[in-house]
């Protein structure tokens, strides 16, 4: 399988991250995390609440500095945010004072494209996420699902090599979530970006991802990485296939074990 030029692998080596809580205590969010994400693959991060999966994503994004270890892409060591690593947040993070079109144009403009070429590019991505007709609406006028599509269009329009998604469908209702999952897969098959996808929904991870990492409770470590691969063929009935449900159950038990261990640790 050939991978198009605009995608990038991620190599994380012995990453540790701590921060100071409000009380002043040092909290170890990530502890010696090592992970390789091949270029063009779809990788999911699963784990109990507070396990640090979002923190890991933010480190890859370059928003949080690392205490030790390194994160490396084909462009070099990650030292800060950049357009080659696009982000999509759970609460959309659209600029509320800009219209959909203006939001999408923002990253395009930063990359240096202007004028008619920029507008055409923005339009193509707005069409890709099925928001045609809403280019001049403000985010406050759109539903949650539409806002998330707009956020996706904005990130994709800046042509990142890597897509970092932090529970992007968590704020949406179940029906919209299913539709967005299918659309995201369609876009991914088309563009073959490297994706790191944080979620707490096991079925979502199994549906979307090539590989899934299950993280332990705080301090976050990677317990296991499992191959999934149900995302290769677009079959809506995949959720009911025995192999699918078995894998979901298997991974859920792993996550469950981490939750129980965390609870046990708290009680102790």
């Amino acid at each position: 399988m050939s991978v198009p030029a605009s995608s990038d692998g991620i190599a994380i080596e012995h990453l540790s991250f701590s921060y100071r809580s409000k009380m002043g205590a040092a909290v170890r969010a990530l502890d010696d995390v090592s992970l390789t994400v091949p270029a063009g693959s779809f990788h999911a991060l699963l784990g109990p609440s507070g396990c640090g999966k979002s923190t890991l994503l933010y480190c890859i994004g370059g928003f949080l500095g690392v205490n030790s270890g390194s994160i490396r892409t084909a462009k070099g060591i990650v030292a800060g945010p950049g357009p080659e690593r696009g982000v999509v947040f759970q609460n959309f993070a659209l600029f509320p004072w800009k219209t959909v079109r203006q939001n999408v144009l923002y990253g395009i403009g930063k990359r240096g494209t202007k004028g008619e070429e920029a507008r055409a590019r923005a339009q193509s991505f707005i069409d890709m996420v099925h928001l045609t007709g809403f280019e001049d609406s403000f985010p406050s006028q759109l539903s949650g699902g539409m806002q998330q599509r707009a956020a996706l269009a904005r990130t994709l329009a800046a042509d990142p090599d890597i897509l970092l998604m932090d529970e992007p469908f968590g704020a949406l209702d179940a029906q919209t979530r299913r539709i967005m999952q299918e659309e995201l897969l369609a876009i991914w098959r088309q563009t073959r970006k490297t994706v790191v996808f944080v979620t707490h929904d096991v079925a979502e991870a199994v549906y979307l991802a090539d590989t899934i990492s299950v993280m332990s409770a705080r301090p976050g470590r990677i317990r296991q990485t499992i191959a999934a691969g149900f995302n290769r063929d677009p079959d809506p009935g995949v959720f009911k296939r025995p192999a699918f449900t078995e894998l979901v159950e298997q991974i859920w038990q792993m996550v469950r074990a981490e939750v129980d261990q965390a609870r046990g640790a708290v009680r102790a």
Partner: peptide
Amino acid sequence: VERHLVWSAESLGAKRTAVFFEVMLPAAM
């Protein structure tokens, strides 16, 4: 100002002054 707005701008390629005038100020308005 919601930090995800600032982070989005940064990851879309905006530099410090741009982030301040194009994102923080309108968001604080």
